[in-house]
Design a protein around this nucleic acid. Structure first.
Lengths: 109, 109
DNA sequence: CATATACTTCGATGGTCATCGAAGTAAAGG
DNA sequence: CCTTTACTTCGATGACCATCGAAGTATATG
């Protein structure tokens, strides 16, 4: 395994707080499954637009916007703006760094 | 890698909520480092008693008791009672299952 | 320009959480 | 038995969080 980046304690804290929510984990799951195939209607492979997340989770657009800001601030997702749309992608490397920190608490957790 | 146990969504939720706290992560870290060597004063290898945690974190005994209940309910630690003392140990397997769930969001997260 | 769409920011509300001290339980020892 | 020690449970308090609708911003388009 390659040498992984070490997360700071603040980064780890933000990531775990972000993932400690069923709604945000559902968002991460949607982004992860979008990774495999392009969305037939609007998105490139690995990308999901905010309106689709809103529709899938049954939450108000403003609520989704809040959740995406939390995930973005935690470095777990990245946003790309194109016109009026915003497309989100999962940062799998960051996700793995968080997993590594949990599996090896002495080193990092 | 051996086939890991799959966590239920509720188990994962409890574990991530438990780890989304700097105080509880500090507790996990202390348990993990106790794993290596026996505590010179009172504890067997891998075990830490509640009073020591209280002292290390500077929190009231009742607060530690609360945090340990959260970690125990999440399956991340186990308690062994001996007389008036309670000794805690880390469940590294559960910790790894949580890490695996994060690293592979499609499968589990 | 006027309007529509996609998203963000703001303010309010209700819910959950961390913490404490006080009171309760339980085990060990004089 | 009474006391001490270690821990848990309870009730209160203040802090933070999720959610909404309303208002704001920005971009595309008639």
């Amino acid at each position: 395994m390659a040498v992984a980046e070490r997360l700071t304690d603040a980064e780890l804290d933000a990531a775990l707080k972000a993932l400690a929510s069923a709604q945000r984990r559902e968002i991460v799951r949607l982004l992860a499954s979008a990774d495999a195939e392009a969305d037939e209607t609007c998105c490139a492979a690995g990308e999901v637009c905010a309106c689709r997340l809103s529709e899938r989770l049954g939450l108000a657009a403003s609520t989704i916007s809040h959740h995406m800001a939390v995930l973005r601030d935690a470095g777990l997702v990245h946003a790309r703006k194109d016109g009026t749309w915003v497309y989100y992608t999962l940062d799998r490397r960051r996700l793995r760094e968080v997993a590594d920190a949990i599996a090896d608490p002495c080193g990092q957790l």
